[in-house]
Computed example of a mutant assay.
Amino acid sequence: MMKLRSSPPSPFGRKVKLAMAILGLKDRIAVEDANTADPADSLRNQNPLGKIPALILENGEVLYDSAVILEYLDFLAGGGKILPAGEARFTVLRDQTLADGIMDAAILRVYEKRFKDPKFRDPDWDAYQAAKMERGLAYFEENTPAAPSSSSDVDAGTLTLACALGYLDMRFGDDWRQTHPKLVAWLDAFEAAVPAFADTRQPSAPVPADANVPLR
């Protein structure tokens, strides 16, 4: 059986778990918690970067980076499920990359608070990352994807966007919701159409950015 190394708060891990469910691969992959902050965790041997998610294949090889793992899962499911063929593929890849970038910027803001003494925190750095998040959200607010009617309508771009918005809910509360009504409605529709989204939800209460939980 394959093994996914991840942690419950990770939005990148969540997107892999969501893809596993959508593609019908949950029974083939065991999920194992990883602590990226622990030097003794075997993760650093599995992924030299020490990052999650990491997918350990049955032959012992390891794939890392959530986009690469989603590509592999789509291949296992027969191809063309969450990553379409042809020109449409590039739109999906672009949207996945933009949603990944929102999550990356959000995580860097979390790290700034978690790892730096307050007197050393850089408000300009935080504002720089916040602006990335806002530009990404503004793009999706202006170019909101079609709401899925079922899990079969989901692709790598939309499932990553849903996980990005879920991560913002967890780390930053409902701040983003105040100014992005189309995305709020879209996420509600996504959750109603894709039961696995609720099943992969991170901790229900917002987690402070400086909380001592595994990275990502």
Rank of each mutant, 00 (worst) to 15 (best):
T97F: 10
D74M: 01
G79L: 11
G136S: 10
I56D: 01
A37S: 13
D95E: 12
S152Y: 12
E112I: 04
L49C: 02
A211S: 12
M133K: 11
I69G: 05
R171Y: 01
L215T: 14
K3F: 06
D199G: 08
S6A: 10
P206M: 09
T200K: 01
L98K: 08
L183G: 04
Y128H: 10
V194E: 02
A192K: 15
P9G: 08
A40D: 09
V62P: 00
D153P: 06
S42P: 11
S149W: 03
L83F: 12
A105K: 08
I29Q: 06
A209G: 05
A196F: 04
T200L: 00
S6F: 03
S10F: 11
P123D: 11
P208W: 08
A77T: 07
L43W: 02
Q202A: 15
P214K: 11
G86V: 14
F115Y: 14
A40L: 12
I52V: 07
F120I: 09
S204T: 14
N35C: 01
S66F: 06
D65C: 01
Y72C: 05
A37E: 14
A147G: 09
E32A: 03
R89F: 06
A198E: 09
R5T: 05
A162L: 00
P208N: 14
L55I: 11
A198M: 06
L165T: 01
A85N: 14
S10V: 06
V207Q: 04
K26M: 07
D95L: 08
Q96C: 03
A37R: 11
E134I: 13
K3N: 07
Y64H: 06
A131C: 05
A211R: 11
E58K: 05
R109P: 03
T158K: 05
E32G: 04
G157S: 03
Y139H: 13
K81E: 07
K15T: 13
I22M: 02
D74W: 02
C163T: 03
L57T: 00
R171I: 09
L161K: 01
T160E: 04
F140I: 09
V92K: 12
T91W: 10
K15L: 00
E32W: 05
D27L: 10
L4E: 03
L63N: 00
A211E: 15
L25V: 01
R14D: 01
F172E: 15
S42Y: 02
M170Q: 01
D104S: 06
P118H: 15
M170P: 01
Y167I: 00
A54I: 10
K119P: 00
A192V: 06
Q178A: 12
A198C: 04
P8K: 02
A105E: 06
I52M: 10
I107L: 11
V110G: 03
T179K: 08
L76R: 08
R135Q: 10
Y111I: 15
D169W: 09
N212F: 06
L76I: 12
V68L: 12
G80W: 00
I82A: 02
N212Q: 15
G50P: 07
D155C: 08
S152Q: 13
P214G: 14
Q46V: 13
G157Q: 00
T144F: 03
R114P: 04
L23K: 07
A211G: 10
A209H: 01
A185R: 15
A105D: 14
L108I: 05
L4S: 01
A54Q: 07
